[in-house]
Design a protein around this nucleic acid. Structure first.
Lengths: 151, 151
DNA sequence: TATAACATACATATAAAATGTATGTTATAC
DNA sequence: GTATAACATACATTTTATATGTATGTTATA
C-alpha cells in the first residue's frame, strides 16, 4: 500500500518548484542531482506535468521549467491521483473475483480509498511548500545555485 | 496504490469463513479451488491467520480450519494492517530523502493513510459477510460442498 | 498404519517499477 | 547560422517485489 516512486518524485519536484523565486527556472539535471534520483524519472515527470499544465517547460539553451499554476490552486489529491497508475485498493475484475456479485468489501475499500484522497484534498501545494531560503538551507545549496543561469 | 493480492486473498478467505456454518471446517484445497487462486497463497494466509489467532487450524485427516474469532470483533483495519507489508505511503528513509528535515508532505501523507485505515475500522468482518445461503448461491456450490466431510 | 491435512522452507516465475541509453526536436546565445 | 543546451520521445534493460510452484516435514484421525 505505497505510492510509486514516480509519484513521490513528482511531489518532491513540485515542492522544489514552489520554492523557486518567481521568474526563475529549474532544469532536469539540477533537479535530479539535487534529489539524487534518476534523471530519467525527473525527465518523465517534468514532461507529464508539462502536459498537465502544471509547469511550463521551455526547450533550448537557457530553457527549463517552472510552476505554471498557483500553488494554492493545486491540491495533493489532484497531484496523487494524476500521477498514480491506479487508485483502486483491489482489482475485482482482472481476474474477476468469484465473490463479485455479493461482495460487500468493494464498497468499503472504495470508501477507504476515498477517505485517503479526500484527506489529501484538504491540502494544497502551498500548504506543504517551504520558503526559498529554507529549501536552500536544507539542500545545502548556494543561493545562486537555486536560480537560473544568467542569459 | 493497491493492496497486495495476499491481502486481497486474506480478505476473501475471511468472508468465506464467516459464512461457514458453525462447527464446519474449510480446507486449503477447497478454498483455493473455489476462488481460483494459488493454493500456495491460501496456504500461507491460513498459516498466518492461524498464528494471529483469527482461525483455528487442525492438521491431519478430517482437519481444516474455521473462524476462531467473533466476526463483529474483527474489523477491516486490523485485517488490512496485519496482512499488508507496509502502510507507509512513502518511505522517506530508504534511500533517505534530502527534503526530510523540512518536508511537510510526510505528515499529510501519514494522515491520509490514517484516514484510509480509520475508514476501514468502521467496518467489522460481520458487516461485510454474507449468509451461508447467499455464498452458496453465488459460488454455485452444492449446499453440501460447503460443509465438512462426514467424520 | 495409511492418509489427509496443515506447517515450513525454499526455489522459480512474472510483472511492475525503476532506471538507463539513445536520439529527436526546439530555442537561444554567440 | 551554427553550435549547444535543454526538453521530448521512444525503447531497452535492470531490479525488485510479488506471486506462484515444488518439496518435504509434521500431526491427527480414520
Amino acid at each position: 500500500m505505497q505510492l510509486t516512486l514516480y509519484t513521490d518524485y513528482g511531489l518532491r519536484l513540485l515542492v522544489y518548484l514552489a520554492a523557486l523565486p518567481a521568474g526563475e527556472r529549474a532544469n532536469i539535471d539540477t533537479v535530479s542531482e539535487t534529489f539524487n534520483v534518476s534523471r530519467n524519472h525527473i525527465n518523465k515527470v517534468v514532461h507529464h506535468m508539462g502536459r498537465l499544465g502544471w509547469i511550463n517547460t521551455r526547450r533550448g539553451k537557457g530553457g527549463g521549467f517552472s510552476l505554471d499554476i498557483d500553488p494554492t490552486e493545486l491540491n495533493l489529491a489532484d497531484i496523487v491521483t494524476a500521477l498514480e497508475p491506479s487508485m483502486l485498493a483491489v482489482d475485482c475484475y482482472e481476474p474477476q473475483c468469484v465473490l463479485l456479485p455479493t461482495c460487500k468489501l468493494k464498497g468499503v475499500l472504495a470508501s477507504a480509498m476515498n477517505a485517503f484522497v479526500e484527506e489529501l484534498r484538504q491540502y494544497s501545494l502551498a500548504d506543504v511548500s517551504n520558503s526559498p531560503a529554507e529549501l536552500v538551507r536544507v539542500l545545502g545549496l548556494e543561493e545562486q545555485a537555486f536560480v537560473s543561469p544568467p542569459n
